[in-house]
Simulated scan of single mutants.
Amino acid sequence: MTSLAPPDHLHLELMSFEDVSDAVASGSSTVLIPCGAVEQHGPHLPLCMDADHADALAVNVAQRLGRALIAPTIRVGCSAHHLVLPGTISLRPETFEAICLDYCTSLAQHGFKRILLFSGHIGNFPVLRDMLPRLRRAVPQDVEIDAFCDSIAWIDRWRSAVKEAGGDPNAVGGHADIAETSLMMLLRPDSVRLHRFEVGHLGALSEAQLQAMWKNGIKSVTDNGIIGDPYGSSAEIGARCLEAISDLLATSFRK
């Protein structure tokens, strides 16, 4: 007789409505909304990097928080500055906000009392920060909505994790760098094109460079779409980076 896999007790979309009802009734009233992006990640990584990252983080964070469920990942995000390179799909900020709003109001209707948003794509952070007050006003007062939007803390954790794993923290730039490449070597190793590694923009972006990137696209600061350096990447570094950000998110959401 063929044995069936046990039901999934974390991901809403793999549960039945009765499973969800029972979970909420028994105290699982926290739900995570992972957000990602489908955008270029240099010549060596697939466009799904940020969405895959969000998927993996969601499981780790839910397990750390306990009694938390995971809504389906919003896989496409705000990536207008990457549209200059083929394949990127970008939502307008108002479209992304509308999707997040509909997620939150739906989940609140079903009895979830804590709705926590985070993104594997740092480019979504400013949009999440801006929409957060409006999301909160759209749900009953007894429903808490929070979002993680601290890009500085995120990059700092990556640099520390890379260093602890024996890599070069100066190779962390935030996009298709040693951290993100290592993550994909862990999560989807067959997708990493090792022969296409290239160094991208190194060093912190100045305010002028950041503004140019938002206005004119990423090629205004890096021709190959990489900010940082993928050389030295490994699955071991990826595991350390995944744990570091999972801890950061879980700690933030426990406050």
Rank of each mutant, 00 (worst) to 15 (best):
A51G: 11
H41F: 08
G36N: 08
L83P: 09
A25H: 11
M49K: 12
V24C: 04
A56G: 09
C35D: 03
I33G: 05
A54T: 04
A54F: 04
L85T: 10
F17D: 07
A62H: 04
G42F: 07
S21L: 06
V31N: 01
H81N: 13
A25V: 04
V31E: 00
L85I: 13
V20H: 07
M15N: 01
L69D: 02
A51D: 07
P46S: 12
E39V: 02
G36C: 05
G66W: 08
D19P: 00
L12F: 08
N60D: 12
L57F: 03
A23Y: 00
P43G: 11
C48T: 15
D50P: 03
V84F: 03
H81T: 15
E13Y: 09
P34M: 10
C48L: 14
H82G: 01
H82T: 02
V84L: 08
D22Y: 06
V61H: 03
D22L: 09
L14W: 12
L83Y: 04
Q63M: 09
V84I: 12
H44N: 07
L47Y: 00
L47W: 00
H41E: 11
L14I: 04
I33T: 08
E39Y: 01
A51Q: 03
H82M: 07
C35F: 07
I70V: 14
D55W: 13
L69F: 05
S21G: 15
V24W: 14
C35M: 12
V24K: 03
T73F: 01
D22R: 13
A68P: 02
A25T: 12
T30K: 13
A56H: 14
D52Q: 11
L47H: 13
A68N: 01
C35V: 09
L65E: 02
A37C: 08
T30A: 14
G87W: 06
Q63V: 08
D19W: 00
V59Y: 15
G42I: 05
P72F: 11
L32Y: 08
E39D: 06
L47K: 14
V38A: 06
A56D: 10
A54Y: 04
T73N: 04
H41L: 08
P46A: 14
S29C: 08
S21A: 15
C48M: 13
V76P: 00
H82C: 05
D22I: 07
L69G: 04
S26R: 10
L32C: 07
C35G: 09
H44C: 10
S28C: 12
C78P: 01
P43S: 11
A54L: 06
A71Q: 01
A51E: 02
G27H: 01
V59F: 15
E18I: 03
D19V: 00
V59T: 15
P34I: 09
F17S: 14
C35S: 13
D52E: 12
Q40C: 09
L65C: 02
P34Y: 05
L14H: 12
V38W: 05
I74Y: 13
P34C: 11
D52C: 13
C48W: 08
G77H: 04
V84P: 00
H81C: 10
L65Y: 10
L65S: 07
G27T: 01
N60W: 05
L57C: 04
F17W: 14
L57R: 06
C48P: 01
P46D: 10
S79R: 00
